[in-house]
Every structure is written in C-alpha cells, then in structure tokens.
Amino acid sequence: MAEQTIMLNCAAGMSTSLLVTKMQEAAKEQGIDAKIFACPASEAQQHLDNEDIDVVLLGPQVGYMKSDFENKVKGAGKGGKDVPLDVINMQAYGMMDGKKVLAQAESLING
C-alpha cells in the first residue's frame, strides 16, 4: 500500500483524471509514494467511507461543493480526524500542473 492517498474530485472525474496522470509523474520524480486517483464528486462519500484517504482536492469547477464536502470529510480520516480538504488552484488546474497541485496536496497533509 502506498504511503499517502490523494483523492481528486470533479463533476465526472474526467478532467481531474488528466491531472492525476501529471501528478503521478511528479510524485515519481520526487520519490513520493502516493496513490492518486480521480472520481466524480458523487462517489466521493463511498471512497471516504471505505478507504484511508489523506487529502481531498476539489476541481475548481466544483469548488461550490466545498461546504458540502466539509461535512463529508469530518472525522473520515485516520483515527477519526478530519481529512484535509481544499479547492485546487485554478491556474494550476488549467495548466494541468501536476507538480504544483502535488505540492498543494503535500502541504495540506503535512500542515
């Protein structure tokens, strides 16, 4: 099992899955052992229930769901902690900048 699990959510999980590939490349380069995956926002709950997820990132286009997600991540992490959550930086998302988004994820995990 990977050390870290990063979940990305957007409407259908399509455009975020593009970003996932870029983030995986970046993680490999930096020697970070992370499982990174994308799924539709509607399936997020299932993953939160069944897996140990270290950080949740939302695509900016579903950023309006953040308040909804705040309830979902409450106590869903390891040992009943809240899972860190944020909306992906718009520019980084658009440029599919895997490095930048990975850095955002890492700082959320470690912060």
Partner: peptide, 26 residues
C-alpha cells in the same frame, strides 16, 4: 501554444477544463 497542445486530446472528447482554467476563459 503550450495550452493548446494540452487541450487537443481532451477537447476531442468534449472536455475543456484546461482551456477554461488555463487560458483562462473563466
């Protein structure tokens, strides 16, 4: 130029978030 290359394949499948947030259009 760089973002056009990024968007070409997703665009064929009707996905254009790279444009919306990267050009940006938003």
């Amino acid at each position: 130029k760089s973002i056009g290359k990024l968007e070409l394949v997703p665009g064929i499948f009707n996905i254009n978030e790279p444009f919306l947030f990267g050009l940006p259009i938003v």
